[in-house]
Write a protein that binds this DNA or RNA. Sequence first.
DNA 1: AGTTGGATGGTCT
DNA 2: GACCATCCAACTG
Length: 197
Amino acid sequence: MREGEAGAGTRVGRIVEVEAYIGEDDQASHARFGRTSRNAVMFGPPGIAYVYLVYGMHECLNLVTEPEGRAAAVLIRAVDPVAGVAAMRAARLAHALRRARTSEARARAEARIGDLAPARLAAGPGLVAAAFGIDREKTGVDLLDPTSSVRIEPADATEPPARITQTARIGIGYAAEPWRSHAWRFIDAGSQALSIA
DNA sequence: AGTTGGATGGTCT
DNA sequence: GACCATCCAACTG
């Protein structure tokens, strides 16, 4: 995953955790209510960004996957930084400071984020968006277009292959079976950047 | 080290 | 009016 022009400050990371949300039948998917104004891009062509707000404060980036007419997307849950660590840390800090009301809270956020290991900067869906400066305005962006501000690329051939493991999806306890238990979370096992070890 | 509860606003019944 | 595809601080033991 890559953000910004080539050069200093560009943010690059390896996607190490994703979840699949497949079809209107999937009782954990935003598409379970059919097409709405929020989820409309999920019903469109693949390769497009779907960014939504959860819990009133965290944005989450998805990649639309199935052909037009079939609602599906992959949630990007964690990214291991490869380049642009300073820019990610700055974006995380800016995000935290926007919410911190007291000077004590600001000081705590500054210390905490300043001490964060690079692998922890984007270790969660809300953190991916915060670290890469992504919000709902990115909905509709073509993530496969090399000229887009944010894009997703194939792994570099020199990278070691991922050791991929599956688990149930996170935070969907409201969904009925069998959807709740489908092992549709995919992780690069052993990565230090996972949202949950 | 694991658990619990608060923040905060858009979306859907 | 209820509920969330979350994160973090403040507790417990």
